[in-house]
Design a protein around this nucleic acid. Structure first.
Length: 213
DNA sequence: CGCCAGGGCCATA
DNA sequence: TATGGCCATGGC
């Protein structure tokens, strides 16, 4: 078993099954992926709630920009994000909003297509691919970068390096990737920044002491 | 009160 | 390729 799988097992046994990214539809995941950019999830929930259960590609496309800005305002960066939402919704509509159709294409080409969309970078693209379309692509976020920085394994530094490292050392499994990412974030939130020696994962050397307590 | 959160774009060198 | 400024709200 790879070192990475061991880390996953350890986190999994510690935190169990996490309810990560609950959404009523793939499109809601897409919208959330944009809204959560550098933003606390609690603010995203506020913004999502302001759609009042009426969240559809048609509505986003037909809504005046000013109205959309008001809805997503609580998520911050509301002028950018309302533009981004229009752009990614156009992309989705261009695919007929058809998840099966999208999934029938090679993952790499879907990803490339998403990256061309205004406001969709590496992480947003991977979040959409994984959590909206259930495709096996590893999501790297700020938590993930910090997480691997704390281990004596060289997972790389850049987004793509870390992503490729994880995908090389794990079975190509969307559920596994999704669970792992959730666990990393959960662990990161538990990790105390002000005391970097106080880590949250028992596999970390600095944490062995704490685990013996 | 200041810090920062589940990034990405753009200008600059 | 790699920094740095910018975008904005709400929780703590």
């Amino acid at each position: 078993m790879s070192k990475l799988k061991e880390i996953y097992k350890t986190l999994s046994s510690r935190y169990g099954d996490l309810e990560w990214w609950p959404a009523e539809s793939p499109f809601e995941v897409i919208v959330g992926a944009v809204l959560t950019q550098n933003t606390a999830w609690t603010n995203v929930e506020k913004a999502l709630g302001r759609f009042e259960g009426n969240l559809s590609p048609e509505r986003i496309l037909n809504m005046p920009t000013e109205e959309l800005e008001e809805i997503v305002r609580p998520a911050g960066f509301f002028r950018q994000k309302s533009r981004y939402l229009k752009a990614v919704t156009e992309w989705f509509t261009g695919c007929n909003c058809d998840i099966d159709l999208i999934r029938s294409a090679p993952l790499s080409s879907i990803r490339a297509g998403l990256l061309k969309v205004r406001g969709v970078g590496n992480e947003t693209a991977d979040s959409i691919l994984l959590y909206a379309f259930n495709l096996p692509t590893f999501v790297v976020d700020a938590y993930t970068v910090r997480f691997f920085g704390r281990f004596p394994i060289n997972a790389g530094n850049s987004y793509m390096e870390i992503k490729d490292f994880c995908e090389r050392n794990l079975p190509k499994d969307a559920k596994l990737y999704g669970d792992f990412h959730a666990l990393i974030v959960q662990n990161g939130k538990e990790h105390c920044k002000k005391k970097p020696e106080c880590f949250g994962c028992p596999l970390e050397k600095s944490c062995e002491k704490k685990m013996e307590e």
